[in-house]
Design a protein around this nucleic acid. Structure first.
Lengths: 172, 172
DNA sequence: CAATAACCAAGTAAATCAGTCAAGTATCTG
DNA sequence: CAGATACTTGACTGATTTACTTGGTTATTG
């Protein structure tokens, strides 16, 4: 299982992009300033994200990045997959040779867990995240701090009743 | 998120204990031999597991470890919690000060993910794992390789219809 | 009392991560 | 077309963490 700040930063940055990309490209410098992520590190991450087809870039003055698709068609699992190796929790990366060529006792269990996590991440889109009240509140504060700019949230995306993404879990 | 070989080893070792603990204590040397985990490392892990109340120990010759409770009352989440710090996926360990004292844009999302994973792990008991056909097959092979011993599976625990632990995931 | 097995405390090599640096290339504005 | 802007690429590094070892102590059985 690889869920580190790399994946977290990527999701945060892309979400920032989704929030501010309403009109034209967003520069990494802007994202860096708002989200407190170092610029060169963002460059590294966005290189992978572009190659994975999550974002597209515009060069030259006034350039920057934009989402490659609608926010409702980009899922968190894609973003994490693009920058991290995987969300696999088995030791053998699913190969089944965990114990000297043999399958270890708990292999199938970790496979189930991985599937579980992946299923969750595949079910949450950027649009779902934007719809959260919490996200919009924080984004608004960040915009205010930055330049007094109004938050550029494409209101068409903020559906009602989606405030907290909740997916049914197993018996408690 | 801390899900490394430490947690995996702990679950595997405890499962081995559950499978072989039918009659009296099981020594770490036995588990080490069957599961290919270094003995001193097992000692480290079982120290934590004992302090967490998951297993109890008997010292001296013929001593070893046993489950502190019935296999149906010990859940994977406990085992991982005992050896790893947590299964939290937020950067700030849930404190909400991810971005220089402020809450970062994606904080609530990682909280949800953490809850999701924890819910899954809390819903799977050792008895559930023992009931898996896969686990019993592998355990049988391991026993045969070792000493030609018969697998000591407490048959009372192997309920039917539980072969694959499946917990309902969100919409795909 | 001797063998056994749990218990305990440091210490260490390797791997990984987060982040940096430097040099380069494409694109736009004036 | 010239300069500035901004993305692109790839190698590099310090710090942290992990997995595992060493060496010893304490309790219990026969």
């Amino acid at each position: 299982m690889q869920l580190t700040t790399k994946g977290r930063y990527a999701v945060t940055a892309i979400l920032d992009l989704a929030l501010h990309g309403g009109e034209g490209p967003v520069s990494l410098a802007d994202i860096s300033g708002r989200q407190d992520i170092s610029l060169p590190y963002l460059e590294q991450l966005f290189g992978k994200l572009r190659r994975a087809g999550v974002v597209n870039s515009v060069r030259g003055p006034g350039g920057g990045y934009g989402l490659a698709r609608d926010a409702s068609a980009i899922f968190v699992a894609e973003i994490i997959g693009a920058v991290d190796e995987s969300v696999d929790t088995t030791r053998c990366q699913g190969a089944g040779d965990c114990q000297g060529g043999e399958t270890c006792l708990t292999h199938s269990f970790w496979e189930d867990l991985s599937e579980q996590i992946l299923g969750f991440l595949q079910g949450v889109s950027l649009a779902d995240l934007i719809a959260r009240r919490e996200v919009r509140r924080i984004a608004g504060e960040q915009d205010r701090k930055q330049h007094g700019k109004a938050p550029r949230i494409p209101l068409a995306m903020t559906g009602a009743g989606l405030d907290e993404t909740r997916i049914s879990a197993g018996a408690p």
